[in-house]
Nucleic acid binder design. Sequence first.
DNA 1: AATCTAACCGGGGTAAAGTCCGTTTATGCT
DNA 2: AGCATAAACGGACTTTACCCCGGTTAGATT
Lengths: 204, 204
Amino acid sequence: MDGDLIPLERPRAERADAARNRRLLLDTARRMIDETGAENVTMDCLAEQAGVGKGTVYRRFRTRAGIFVALLEEAERTFQQRVLSGPPPLGPGGDPVDRLIAYGQGRITFLLDNHAVARAAMGQNRPVPVAGPGLTRIHIRVLLERAGVGATHLDALTLQLAAALEGPILLYLATPDPAEGERERSLQALAEGWKILVTRVCHP
Amino acid sequence: MDGDLIPLERPRAERADAARNRRLLLDTARRMIDETGAENVTMDCLAEQAGVGKGTVYRRFRTRAGIFVALLEEAERTFQQRVLSGPPPLGPGGDPVDRLIAYGQGRITFLLDNHAVARAAMGQNRPVPVAGPGLTRIHIRVLLERAGVGATHLDALTLQLAAALEGPILLYLATPDPAEGERERSLQALAEGWKILVTRVCHP
DNA sequence: AATCTAACCGGGGTAAAGTCCGTTTATGCT
DNA sequence: AGCATAAACGGACTTTACCCCGGTTAGATT
């Protein structure tokens, strides 16, 4: 028997073949997105290209949007590492306002780079679409608190700032695939706007 | 050849039967939403209930989301009247910052009241989902300018504030149908957050 | 190694969005 | 009123996300 003192890890580890198929599907999806655009990635087609059954795709990612969420989370991991344990101002240790500004800039860059995937990740289904209770909200909330923002409903303000950060790209930026110069200009403009928002909200 | 000197009025007025069917469809849709919820309003079912063919539904509102957009615009009209020609602080004539605060409160109320329709109005399709270049953005932009906010990219800041206003409800507020007390609490919290945002952004 | 079981795999089936095209009808002109 | 025509109508058709369930297999236990 296993002498584990703490045997109750997550219900069960993912089976090897399942993990292999997950990778295969993610890679195939990534390739198809590059080749034909996210909106042309259909479930049937993805399954066929990957050489697995359609049911398998649905077992791994519960929905079509789930595929893009997974892709997005994967891409996000390295950025999250820099936020959680990198050097300031992005990482821990600096002035909270500077960290907010840096986080915003990083997040905007990330979303612009992954624009197509991010938009595809929000299916019109029930719960929160993208970046559920993702890092963004928690991070913003903690830094606002630390910066000493006085608001009786800090959660609402957090939500609003998160929306100000992500909304323009998810909701309003309609261009299916921003041109090169366009991207740079958007980045500059949104980063400046975010900086204004954060500094003025934090030191009135 | 046509000797029209000023031939190019609007392409043509809407035909009477078309207008009648539009009304019929909107009313039927509204009723179905109340009865079974917005997510159960299917195109086939709507057409059948209204007693018209499916093609007709698609001709009137190009897409499923289009129906909800139309419904939303209809509901919005009275609020827009108050904004454009009502008494201050919502209507014209007062301090721009006060007007921004009042607009936000009104808009939050409106979106909470029409939560289900508003969410259904954003299909995951190409262009801007809800409130296209609707009043919100133009209004915010004008008032920011008038309040003397100094930003080199005013458009971006406008987008971000619009997102702060609408995003929490469209993007993050997951509850399918907020309970009575819940709605009141959300309204209070979001209105306060919006007030903080606007006042601090406008007089630093 | 044999066995047992839960998880995985596949692909056919359903429902709903959106398209097409032949038919009908309202409206402007003579 | 009669006619021409552009618009509206209807419903069959296509596509796609998502469900289901019988057969198969990885991995733990003995």
